[in-house]
Simulated scan of single mutants.
Amino acid sequence: MAGANMERCSWCGTEDIYVEYHDAEWGVPQRDSRMLWEMLVLEGFQAGLNWITILKKRENFREAFEGFDPDKIATWGEPQIEKLLQNPGIIRHRGKIAATITNAQAWQAAEQNGGFDRFIWDYVDHQPIQNDFQSMSNVPAATDLSTRMSKDLKKAGFKFCGPTIVYAFMQACGLVNDHMTNCPRHSEVARLSQ
């Protein structure tokens, strides 16, 4: 892991929780189907907010959503939605909560059809894309690939997965390496991809 004085990607700032996320998790290739699903759900909750808001509430989300167990969440209905709307520890947005239930059901269908992890990683031929951005201003909010994945996710029944959300998901889960080239994590994450 990179040192305390490294020149990190500027987006992570200096707050400990953000720095730790940048240094240990963001961009690392994630191949666990349930973790990929959890990250897609959290990226959906992040829509319209800053990611640090989600990071600070992530453990509350995990508790409220039973460890992000899609098999449990797929069975939920209005009583669980109403309960979650009263939970101040999460983002209380009816549409996003309902979408999590729908997304759990879509995840189950993907698992039955070869696996959600395979579905996601097929878009990059199971090998992370290594970008070489030198400035945050060069990083796109969405790409043709994230647009295609978004459309396919929606066809598969997923909600809150527009092209921008999907690109952020791809960055977070290491389908693309968008660490800046001057950030030591760029080469570290690239090595993890091999």
Rank of each mutant, 00 (worst) to 15 (best):
D69H: 04
T143E: 15
R118L: 04
D23S: 02
H93P: 03
Q194C: 03
T53A: 07
V28C: 09
L84K: 12
A74W: 10
R8H: 07
M6P: 15
I17Y: 14
A4Q: 15
G162R: 14
A168R: 11
D144R: 09
L192K: 09
N103A: 11
T102H: 05
A142Y: 15
G13E: 04
M136T: 13
A47F: 14
V41Y: 04
A64C: 03
S33E: 01
K154W: 11
F158I: 08
L55Q: 05
R34Y: 01
F116V: 05
N87F: 11
L42W: 05
C12N: 09
R8Q: 03
R92A: 02
D69W: 02
N60G: 15
I90E: 05
G13D: 01
A156W: 03
Q30P: 09
R8G: 07
V28S: 09
D132G: 14
Q194I: 14
L42G: 00
G67N: 10
F68P: 07
L153I: 04
Q112S: 10
A64H: 08
L145G: 12
D125E: 08
S146K: 07
S150K: 03
G77E: 08
N177C: 02
S193H: 04
F133C: 03
A64I: 12
V19W: 07
E63G: 13
G115S: 06
Y167F: 05
W107P: 00
A74M: 00
N50V: 03
R92I: 06
W37D: 01
F65K: 07
Q127K: 15
G157T: 01
L40H: 03
W11N: 04
F68L: 08
E78I: 01
I81V: 09
P163M: 12
I165S: 05
P140L: 05
K151P: 07
D69E: 09
T164Y: 01
F68D: 00
H93W: 08
K155M: 14
Q134S: 14
F133E: 10
W51A: 00
C9G: 01
R58H: 02
N87L: 12
W107K: 05
L85W: 08
E111N: 09
A168N: 08
L175W: 08
C173F: 02
V124Q: 02
E59G: 09
E63F: 13
P88C: 00
E82W: 08
D69C: 15
A141Y: 13
D32S: 15
A190F: 10
N103H: 00
N87P: 01
E78G: 02
A99C: 13
K96C: 02
K159C: 11
P88T: 03
Q80M: 12
N177M: 10
T147C: 10
Y21M: 03
E66P: 13
T181L: 01
W76Y: 13
R94Q: 09
L192H: 01
A64Q: 01
G114M: 10
I129Q: 05
A156V: 15
V124D: 12
T102D: 08
L84Q: 02
F68G: 01
F119H: 03
T147G: 03
L175I: 00
K154S: 12
R118W: 11
P29H: 02
W51H: 07
R92H: 10
L84H: 07
V139I: 15
Y21V: 08
L85Y: 07
F65S: 15
W121H: 04
L49N: 06
Q112K: 09
E20Y: 13
D144Q: 11
C12S: 06
G95N: 06
I91N: 07
I17L: 12
G3H: 10
